[in-house]
Design a protein around this nucleic acid. Structure first.
Lengths: 149, 149
DNA sequence: TCTAGTTCCTATAGCGACTATAGGAGCAAG
DNA sequence: CTTGCTCCTATAGTCGCTATAGGAACTAGA
């Protein structure tokens, strides 16, 4: 006999919220589960593990399409993991790019805050720097990582 | 006689895309501009400067509400710039938090990629680490900066 | 057995900050 | 005068959820 848990239990066990579990089912990351007589979803251990996998990948900033591919790979253990490696490497490059961007941003915010003498707005360094992009050290304008928490 | 430019020219001059200019007007970041006889928007120098201000603030990751307040401050140069300073400082704290999160994330991705021996999926470090959150060094799960590019 | 409270169900709308599309109108150059 | 660009409005789509409405089904206690 398999462990069969409700959506709430699966959610707690995996750290994914209940509506998010249903959402993952809807977008096809999670297979359609069995149901009770009363039409409630029943999950087994592999479903919960899959949810935890998805959650961890999302925390690491992989988008849903990348996770879809990683899950497909996980489902076929005999295949080469070259693609998983490539996905991780590609994502790492993206994260590094993002890090550089954020560091430039941090430097400019510090410059703004340091320069501010708490006087009037007309001489405020914060407002000044925002108004004048030419004076800006920040030119590394990158894309966000999808919904990274 | 004032310089009066089309939306396309204002967009090019400020670095904001045309549909985004209209969007900023719609959400009240930009005042309703004059129109030509043919119903086309006409912008003057202050509008273009305002757009550049908004763009720069967005690039620095300020959300629209913060920008709304910064613009309101900019419109009243006699006021104290304490609020602008506070907004910038608060945002800097957020950016620093985000930076720490991204660095943890980078470390874990590197660990994944380093461990991968390019063998089969069943022994792939990338897949393994994703599957097992217990093994993870990444516990700094933070909120994203709104739409930072 | 009744009932109160919790969990679950579906379907749909909302979030932020845009971006894309449809379907047209204006305008400048050749 | 026609080609092609820019512009107009209005609406829907993006991503990854999250919230809401309105109901049905379990669970525990009286």
């Amino acid at each position: 006999m398999q462990t069969a848990v409700s959506i709430g239990q699966a959610a707690r066990a995996s750290g994914v919220k209940v509506p998010t579990v249903r959402y993952y089912e809807q977008i096809g990351l999670l297979p359609l589960p069995d149901r009770t007589d009363g039409n409630r979803r029943l999950y087994d251990r592999t479903d919960v593990e899959r949810l935890a996998f998805i959650r961890h990948a999302r925390e690491l900033g992989f988008d849903v399409e990348a996770i879809r591919r990683l899950l497909a790979l996980q489902d076929e253990p005999e295949q080469s993991c070259a693609e998983a490696d490539a996905l991780a490497k590609q994502h790492l490059i993206e994260v590094e790019r993002r890090l550089r961007s954020l560091m430039a941003l941090k430097a400019e915010l510090e410059r703004m805050v340091e320069g501010c003498t708490q006087g009037k707005v007309e001489s405020c360094r914060v407002i000044e720097i925002l108004a004048d992009h030419g004076e800006c050290r920040h030119h590394d304008h990158e894309k966000p990582l999808s919904g990274l928490k």
